[in-house]
Design a binder for these strands. Structure first.
Lengths: 233, 233
DNA sequence: TGGTTCGATATGGTCTGACCATACTGTGGT
DNA sequence: ACCACAGTATGGTCAGACCATATCGAACCA
């Protein structure tokens, strides 16, 4: 055991260095959505690494919804900073749900929390009622379970949007998107969409009336009806 | 405008195909955390693509907390499925906060929502009080703002953990980690940690007493005291 | 028999250099 | 003023090489 001659070995992978450098540059230069990053080849030369490593870093940033790459030439080409947490969150949740690393119950509880919060905030602030009403009226034409879920998602996301908090909105939308498959199954199993529609109407009425507690309660009952097996507690 | 001769061009990038194939394999074979993926070279040959494309797909999966790569040889080497949504969420939030794609206010509101929810659930279920008490007692030794924030984070995450929902726990931990910098600033600006400690005690007491509404109120007041400028509404 | 040493091997990590498809840029001709 | 076309910068992909690491296994020694 000769520890005496120990010297710091390379522990971070090259692409992680690149990530750190890019993140540092974003922070120091105050880059925001819309700004362009240097081209891959240029960045590779600047940082003294291969283009492969730069590309792997780009893939990470892209998967986290921070950059978007466009081919070709011109002002819009190259790696452009974006702010799309939704897509990243959706992928993340979908993959972890698929691997059974998360259970449906946990996702639905999170939805429950967000919708209650958003509905009572919307009721207190008296905001977003027109968007909600629009989403509600759009549901009448839905014939298949898929169509119904599509409009249902729009309505529930409109509740979250009414909160004005982009992070919570993004989480809500990702939760819905990642569990779309299960939502369709739930609607098909339930058969009856009339009660679900009625639940939406009650939520909207409570928000319009500025009744925060009533809105939260309506959300709760609506979800309990849609997923009865998960609300045994 | 000659649209007549349109033919299906390649729209999806190769590494996205690889991602889809891997996701399909996870779903069909029922792979879960701990299972191994084929080696990069092998996967490349199976799918008829280059190793670079497989590697870019791996980087994405790794950044989303779905796989973890180990070098070397043996049963634990290679790409192993994992379930680490926290790390991915933390990176995602930190990057978006850094680019000003999200505002601190939104992150703190989300924290507020989660902690209220978790505290009232913990109070109703009477769960997690011992972990909370342990986290609370650990705070007494904190001298610097950094140390205080460290223990503060542990306490607040313990509240989320008490909910038993891994997704909400992961979101909470990521929110805290990504705003650690701002939390330290807030504590330094505030100076007084005694009131913050007292707030923790009130939260714990309410949870121990099974007082869900009281716990939610205590959380609310605690956060309002810590970030007064963000609670003007 | 048991342990140790050391080469073979499988894995991810990195680099180089090439080629392709795309989309703008600028030039030159009409 | 318009249009056609070559030039060029960009990301996307590939092939092949080499390195570092960690295990495996056989040969070797005690």
């Amino acid at each position: 055991m000769d520890d005496g001659g120990w010297r710091p070995v390379k522990r971070t992978r090259t692409f992680e260095d690149v990530l750190a450098q890019i993140e540092r540059r974003i922070a120091e230069d105050g880059l925001t959505a819309g700004d362009r990053l240097p081209a891959e080849r240029q960045l590779a030369e600047q940082l003294g690494v291969s283009r492969s490593s730069v590309r792997e870093a780009m893939r990470v940033l892209e998967s986290l919804g921070v950059v978007s790459s466009q081919v070709g030439r011109g002002p819009d080409a190259g790696a452009v900073l974006t702010s799309r947490p939704e897509t990243a969150l959706t992928d993340l949740l979908r993959l972890h749900l698929g691997m059974a690393g998360l259970e449906l119950r946990e996702v639905i509880d999170a939805r429950h929390m967000i919708e209650q919060w958003a509905a009572s905030h919307a009721a207190s602030a008296g905001a977003g009622t027109s968007a909600l009403a629009a989403a509600l009226s759009g549901m009448d034409g839905a014939r298949t379970a898929e169509e119904f879920v599509e409009h249902d998602t729009a309505f529930h996301c409109a509740i979250a949007d009414a909160s004005g908090n982009r992070l919570i909105s993004a989480i809500m939308r990702s939760l819905r998107d990642s569990m779309r498959r299960y939502a369709v199954e739930a609607v098909e199993r339930l058969g009856d969409t009339a009660t679900l529609r009625a639940g939406h109407v009650r939520i909207l009425r409570a928000i319009e009336a500025g009744d925060a507690d009533g809105a939260a309660r309506a959300v709760s009952e609506h979800l309990a009806h849609a997923y009865p097996s998960l609300f045994d507690h």
